[in-house]
Design a protein around this nucleic acid. Structure first.
Lengths: 338, 338
DNA sequence: ATCGCATTTGAAAACGTTTTCAAGATTGAA
DNA sequence: TTCAATCTTGAAAACGTTTTCAAATGCGAT
């Protein structure tokens, strides 16, 4: 591959001059400029971005750590980040941590080694103090989907407690009184928050919390399926289920339908996230909207701004509020005022 | 951030020595090695991968171009590539082209500028000759999901014609005689191939091809929904539909159910791709399995091999064969021998 | 013609690595 | 003790850029 020297030689000028026309960082007389341009064209010259990044100490890359590369949830997160980063002429490097501490660590190391200008991080496995150590680095970093105490201004997160509260309250307002919660078995803050929201709604309706009505499994479709089977087998007279995410809801619905239960006639289901799947299930899933695309976009906007204030500043709060999306998976048992 | 000189100074050795212990590329006496190690630790030193890539002309990165960053199909493709590339200690840089010629071009340029060691490309928009020009570069490149004549050994692709044939034949063998095809309106080879497969199966059963039974829209859920509405409105006595992909099938099913038609009792549906969604729909979708994860993994294995023969060689053929996955969206009208 | 000033140019240093090369230190055998 | 052979080491060049700085050129006014 041709380099800048080849171009300089071909155009009969110095490398400095070539550099100047590439970046037009200074004026060059028209005929030399033209000579350089044609030489670049002829040699199919493309500047080596590594060399450029080395001297500029700017790679024009934003690093992004997600949980998995293939999942509607992270797909939306990636899309949000990609969108705004590309709009600013920069690029994204994505890595996945698979909710595994070592992989998350490696991924972040990789992004840092690559000299990304900024980072957007979704981490479930890394402990707070390790993330704080990152935040203390002097590179723009935003943590997505997690709140670290004392670092609220660097975290773009959702009010999980309120989301779970909304979902549960919705079920209660539709007359349900025996509501199971299918949660995640990975020890992570949003899991705990959602249990709190569930309990708070229950309390508001003076319904005692029953530990037997919550079962925790791996937060995917299969986990939801198994958990639902467990709930059914416990025979607690449950008329509704609230799940940690839509994938689990899908698994739960499948399990119910396969075992001859009708949804929502016999058992109502509310999910969480509102991934695309939710609209496609039958019955269409009533769920809590998690604006993950918007959150990714906001995170990206913030790091870009920190990097270079010529990018639009984000004045929005970093805390997002979930919303109930009513579809068809909840039956109205006996309406009650909220 | 500390650089190699700082480490050298701290350890009281030359940069060459530090480099040697980093890569252990030559022997260093134990006490100096230790001194270097502790200095690196103390300074939290991390080699600058850009500088390293510059001198080695090896970035240890594989570039990947996909259609969209958020879609189950490309999610699986990315996951396949990521998996094998990570296993070899290298990394992936993903870009998305959104099926748009300019964006695809830009993305590839970016990956090349970044000096990726190898590329895996999924392109729908770029013309053959432009891709050929890429393949002629002396860097390992594999094209996924597209067959370029004369370059079969560089293309990992699916037998689309056969997939469509399989789907249509399945419907025919279940007694369906009036089968609509909901196709893609983007002019791309696999679209045409699938129409051919559909026609071939029809011919085999001596059923005349009826242009009115095929409608083409944008290949997503909404497109499927609209296309299905169109098919219904044409009132052609259709008892089954085969769609270009699962998302369209989902849209079609939603449309049918919303307008009071039962699936599969009134109308049977067969999709294409077998993305995760297919298992979750109700009824579960009978579809054609597109082994995209495996194809991504194979493409990655090949470029890695070309890069450095120490990675396992791929002896498999580059052409994948689709398979029918029977689930519940097809009704048996009147069995007929295949 | 000459002077001064502004514009355009190229040489060289810098970015942070790896690697080559030659020199210095160490070892073992005679 | 000496010599050769082997190990270990550091200086310097290289990778492909950008940028600083000083020199060269061009221009208008005198």
């Amino acid at each position: 591959m041709a380099n800048i020297k080849d171009v300089a030689k071909a155009a009969g000028v110095s490398v400095s001059t070539v550099s100047r026309v590439i970046n037009d960082s200074a004026s060059v007389v028209p005929d030399k400029r033209q000579a350089v341009l044609t030489a670049m064209e002829a040699l199919q010259y493309r500047p080596n971005s590594l060399a450029r990044a080395l001297v500029n100490s700017r790679s024009d890359c934003v690093g992004l750590l997600v949980g998995e590369i293939d999942s509607p949830f992270f797909g939306a997160l990636m899309a949000g980040v990609h969108h705004v980063v590309h709009d600013s002429g920069k690029h994204v490097i994505v890595t996945a941590g698979y909710h595994h501490i070592e992989k998350e660590r490696d991924s972040i190391r990789f992004l840092l080694d690559r000299r990304c200008d900024a980072l957007v991080i979704h981490s479930k496995a890394l402990p707070d103090d390790e993330l704080v150590r990152l935040l203390e680095l002097d590179i723009p970093i935003i943590i997505v989907n997690r709140l670290i105490k004392g670092w609220e201004h660097r975290c773009v997160y959702l009010d999980n407690e309120y989301g779970a509260y909304l979902a549960t309250r919705h079920l209660l307002s539709k007359g349900h009184r025996d509501i199971a919660y299918i949660g995640t078995n990975i020890a992570i803050e949003d899991g705990a928050d959602r249990v709190h929201g569930y309990r708070r709604a229950l309390e508001e309706f003076s319904i005692p919390f029953n530990e037997r009505k919550v079962v925790r499994t791996f937060p995917d479709e299969e986990g939801g399926h198994n958990a639902m089977a467990e709930v059914v087998s416990r025979d607690l007279g449950v008329t509704a289920v609230f799940t940690y995410n839509d994938a689990m809801a899908a698994g739960a619905i499948t399990m119910l339908q396969d075992s001859g239960h009708r949804v929502p006639e016999e058992i109502s289901v509310v999910g969480f996230d509102d991934v695309i799947l939710a609209r496609l299930l039958n019955p269409r899933l009533t769920t809590i909207r998690y604006p993950v695309y918007e959150m990714g976009a906001l995170a990206a906007r913030i790091v870009l701004h920190q990097l270079d204030s010529k990018f639009a500043r984000a004045d929005q709060p970093l805390r997002f509020t979930p919303r109930l999306i009513e579809r068809q998976s909840v039956r109205d048992v006996a309406p009650v005022a909220v």
